[in-house]
Design a protein around this nucleic acid. Structure first.
Lengths: 202, 202
DNA sequence: CTTTGCATTAACCATTTGGTTAAACCGTAT
DNA sequence: ATACGGTTTAACCAAATGGTTAATGCAAAG
C-alpha cells in the first residue's frame, strides 16, 4: 500500500534538495516552498525559521553519513578487510548522494560554531579509537607498513570522497562529459582499494 | 620604498578575504566595503557588480592555483620526482591559503556554467596529457605499478587537498585544537609522498 | 585662483528575503 | 448542521541587499 508522505516529510525532502544544492546562504525559503508545492508560510508553520529547518536537515544528513561510516569500522574483521569494506560502503553511500560530502564540509566550514556541540554529542571518536588501535597493532606485528593512523584515515577518506567533492571542477577543467565521468567512477572502488592495499603491504 | 596600495588593490584584497570566507552567496557587498574601509558605492565604481567583482577575484585565485600546479608538472624530471615535487608545492601553496581549495571547488559546484568557458581557456589539459603519458611510459617499463593515470592524479590531488578541505569538519568531529592540527599537517607532505611512493613501487 | 576630471561619499531606490498575521479550508466529533 | 481543531493560504511587513545618483573632495593643469 502506498501512503502519501506527510507535509512535514515533503518539506524535508524539498529542503534537503535545495539546501544541498545551494547551501544555507544560497537557499531561498521561497524556492523550498515551491519545490515542496506549498505556501511559504507553511514552512514556518512546521519549522519556525530557516535556521531551524536547516539544522533539522543537516543533522539528518550528517547522522546518516556518520552511521554509515561507523558500521564498517565497528565489525571485528581483519584490518585490510575492514578498510576495504569501509571504502566500498563509503563510496556507495556517496554515489547515492554525490553532493553530500561537499555540502557537509562546506557548511561546517562556513559556520563551525553552529555544529561543534551538536557534532560532539554524536561520539564518532570511540569507534575510531578502536580502528586506530587495530592499525597500530598490525604495524607492530609488521603486517602493514608504518603510518600514523590519523594520516592513514585522512588518506582513506580523501581517496574516497575527494573525486566527488571535486567532480564539478574536474568536469569543468577537463570538459569531460557525464558518461565518461561515470565510467571513471565505476572503477573507483577497485582502484582505491588497490592503491591503499599496495601502500600498506609490508 | 613602500608604495601604499591602490584603492583597487585594497578592494581586491578585501573582496578576496570575504568571498573566500563566505562564498559568493554568503558574501555581502557592505561587508567587503567595510573590510576595505571604503564606501559601498566605491565598489560599484571600480567593479560594476557583485558578479563582476567575484569573477575578477575568482579568476585571479584560480589562475594562481593552476599556475602552481602546472610548474611541477612541466619539468622534465623522472616521474616519481615530479610527483613528489607536485605534492610539496601543492601542499605548500594550500598551507599558505588553506581556504582556497574548498572555495574553488564549492563555487564551481554552485555555478558550473559560469566557469566552464573561462576555465577551458586556461588550457590545463595539454600539460596534464604529458604528465599522463609519462605515467603510462613508466608503467610499461615496469617501473611503477599499473593504475589509470586519471585515477592516480585524482589520488594525488585528494591526498594533498582533502585534509584542508575537511579541516573544519575534522576539527569539529574530533574536538582537535589548532596546535594539534598544525602538528599533524607538519608531517603531511612526508606522509603523502611516502604513501604514494609505496603504492607505486613495483 | 580657477577649472577640469577622477575619486569618494551620503542619501536614496527597487527588489528580495525571512518572517508574521488573519482569514479560509476541511475533516471530525458533538 | 455546527462547532472545533489542526492545516493551508493570501496578503502583508520590516529588514537587508545590490545597485544608483547627485553632490562633494581634491589634486593636477591651465
Amino acid at each position: 500500500m502506498i501512503v502519501e508522505p506527510s507535509t512535514e516529510q515533503i518539506i524535508k525532502e524539498a529542503a534537503k534538495k535545495i539546501f544541498v544544492r545551494k547551501g544555507f546562504a544560497g537557499a531561498r525559503m521561497q524556492e523550498i516552498a515551491e519545490e515542496a508545492g506549498i505556501n511559504k508560510a507553511l514552512l514556518h508553520y512546521y519549522y519556525r525559521s530557516k535556521e531551524k529547518l536547516f539544522e533539522g536537515i543537516f543533522s539528518e544528513i550528517f547522522d546518516h553519513m556518520i552511521g554509515q561510516l561507523k558500521q564498517s569500522v565497528t565489525t571485528d574483521k581483519p584490518l585490510i578487510q575492514k578498510i576495504e569494506d569501509f571504502v566500498d560502503r563509503y563510496i556507495s553511500t556517496i554515489e547515492q548522494n554525490p553532493y553530500i560530502p561537499l555540502f557537509i564540509v562546506n557548511e561546517i566550514a562556513q559556520n563551525p560554531d553552529r555544529f561543534v556541540e551538536k557534532i560532539k554529542s554524536k561520539q564518532v571518536f570511540p569507534e575510531l579509537a578502536g580502528f586506530f588501535q587495530q592499525m597500530l597493532g598490525e604495524m607492530e606485528r609488521g603486517n602493514i607498513r608504518e603510518i600514523p593512523p590519523l594520516h592513514l584515515f585522512l588518506n582513506i577518506l580523501g581517496l574516497c570522497a575527494f573525486p566527488f567533492i571535486a567532480k564539478p571542477m574536474v568536469k569543468a577543467v577537463s570538459g569531460m562529459d557525464e558518461d565518461t565521468w561515470e565510467m571513471l567512477m565505476k572503477d573507483r572502488k577497485k582502484e582505491v582499494k588497490t592503491f591503499i592495499r599496495r601502500a600498506l603491504m609490508a
